[in-house]
Design a protein around this nucleic acid. Structure first.
Lengths: 113, 113
DNA sequence: CAAATATACATTAGATTCTTATGTATTGGA
DNA sequence: TCCAATACATAAGAATCTAATGTATATTTG
């Protein structure tokens, strides 16, 4: 099963921040592969969504970058800035809270009316 | 805590379909109030998001409507069509599956690298 | 009883974020 | 040698939401 795209909306930044929290530094392509692998192909990040998102997080001072060359091919590593570490924690716990709310909302039987 | 808007994106239709699955029929304003109440004000649906979404679901044959007058004030009740009942089940189980995936993705320690 | 609040529908401009497509270039394997 | 994988990036258009606005009735409160 590949989730309908609308479901994933709004979760991309949280996913990025979580991976960078656990891995210190990662590059874009690596993130797509890691997510694909961890979710058994259920979530496949597209480049058109990922790169603009990474650029936005960098512009907000949440991520910092280092560019390295692997042979002649460029690779851009992203890391959490100090600010980013806080934002990361906040985003993840906000999402955890949101999931609890949604779990409750979707499990309950509200046959009151 | 009120969730950042991006988190809620993409969950609106699932919420609507779940409420209508449990309640047979509801009207727009009622849906906003019920969600607000059930989530202790954490999720507050806006009319600008809700009504277009209801109209779209109706246009897709997922919801049917009945209009009633309460005094002089109009009230538009929405119900799941037979097709809507299937879509409802699918959406909810897809979301449940998605939540499991996200839970795994956000809880794990991936300090492999 | 007047005014404020709540109920109840709806639309729209603009913002955000995603999809899909396209572009460039290097590297590795069949 | 050619195809797939690696690795970056952008851009047009679609989808969906926010915030504002509009209309009207009903109820509560000072």
């Amino acid at each position: 099963m590949i989730y309908s795209s609308e479901l994933i909306k709004g979760t991309l930044k949280t996913i990025i921040l979580k991976l960078l929290k656990d891995n210190k530094r990662m590059y874009g392509y690596e993130i797509t592969q890691r997510v694909k692998e961890l979710t058994h192909d259920r979530i496949q990040l597209t480049e058109g969504a990922l790169y603009p998102s990474l650029h936005a997080l960098e512009a907000d001072g949440i991520l910092t970058t280092e560019t390295e060359y692997i042979g002649k091919r460029v690779r851009k590593y992203y890391s959490l800035s100090p600010k980013g570490k806080n934002v990361s924690k906040e985003k993840i716990s906000e999402f955890a809270d949101f999931m609890n709310t949604m779990k409750f909302l979707l499990d309950i039987k509200t046959d009151i009316a």
